[in-house]
Amino acid sequence: MFAVIVNAVTSSLGALLGFFLKRGIPERFTKAIFGVISLCVAIMGIQGAVQSQNLLLVLASMVIGTLVGTLIGIEDGMNRFGEFLKKRMGRGDDSRFVRGFVTLSIMQVIGAMAIIGPVQAALGSNDLLYFKSALDFTSSFIFGTLYGLGVVPVGIVLFLYQGFFYLLATFVMPLMTPDVVRELNAVGSVMILGIALNMFQLTKLKVADFLPALFIPIIYYHLIV
């Protein structure tokens, strides 16, 4: 659990540092860095998606997962939670508070790394989560300079999400076969690409509603095939 806590703390710490240091960083630099990060996120998404060996499964996972997520209203729920935090922290009508919270939350919790990392940590290997902590610290710092305190509570989301998989590691680990990991990573990478498109302001995809798609490869390889 220590590595899960480290990941959550570094995420919030990066956001706090970004918030307090943003006045010393000219806006043109933060925008330039944000553009580079957006580009790298897009490349990450494409690189992971093309590793799939079953594109039909990826498509089916995205369609089914999106239908379930839209029915549940995951992104709307996250928005409501963000609005609640905004009011509690006295941020008034700052719409960037919610946008930053939702975007960074999705960016840091989706994908195989956020699932496999806690599972590996439960089995004694913290390396993957420590690597993810460094990535999350960097992205949180940039988002903190751009969106303010709205991204600080993302550490809470990380702790709850990854802590869940850590506690269920004994049940999840037997299911994480190479096929499941590969296709789960491809599905998560499609979501990462969706985030990049939103970061470029080319689309307004409700990427949080895609999250149930991550469970479809597990169901497919263990209950269908």
Results as ranks from 00 to 15, higher is better:
33 I>Y: 00
124 G>W: 07
208 A>N: 01
124 G>K: 08
166 Y>T: 06
88 R>H: 01
1 M>T: 13
221 Y>I: 07
105 S>W: 07
100 G>E: 08
158 L>N: 05
20 F>H: 11
3 A>K: 10
100 G>I: 11
117 G>I: 09
38 S>W: 00
58 V>I: 13
42 A>W: 09
184 L>Q: 07
206 K>T: 03
217 P>A: 02
199 M>Y: 03
123 L>G: 11
131 F>Q: 14
42 A>V: 13
118 P>S: 00
97 F>Q: 06
154 V>K: 01
185 N>A: 08
134 A>T: 15
72 I>V: 14
1 M>N: 15
202 L>G: 01
40 C>G: 12
148 G>W: 08
132 K>H: 10
222 H>I: 01
216 I>V: 15
189 S>I: 03
86 K>D: 03
174 P>V: 08
17 L>G: 03
13 L>W: 14
60 A>H: 01
61 S>G: 02
97 F>V: 04
69 G>M: 00
32 A>I: 02
39 L>G: 13
60 A>P: 02
15 A>S: 13
194 G>L: 12
67 L>N: 03
56 L>F: 12
86 K>S: 07
163 G>P: 10
2 F>L: 15
121 A>I: 08
168 L>F: 13
108 Q>C: 12
182 R>F: 04
51 Q>H: 10
24 G>E: 05
197 L>Q: 03
203 T>W: 13
138 T>F: 14
22 K>E: 14
3 A>I: 12
105 S>L: 01
190 V>G: 00
86 K>G: 01
65 G>M: 05
153 P>E: 00
123 L>T: 13
210 F>L: 14
47 Q>D: 15
76 D>S: 10
10 T>V: 15
71 L>A: 14
169 A>H: 09
81 F>N: 01
5 I>F: 15
34 F>Y: 10
99 R>T: 11
71 L>I: 09
223 L>I: 06
146 L>V: 12
109 V>C: 15
188 G>D: 04
126 N>W: 13
77 G>I: 06
64 I>Y: 02
195 I>V: 12
156 I>R: 02
213 A>E: 00
93 D>V: 06
112 A>E: 09
217 P>M: 03
95 S>N: 13
87 K>T: 11
127 D>N: 12
72 I>T: 09
200 F>L: 14
156 I>E: 13
70 T>M: 10
93 D>I: 04
129 L>G: 03
190 V>D: 01
64 I>L: 11
120 Q>T: 15
128 L>R: 05
33 I>N: 00
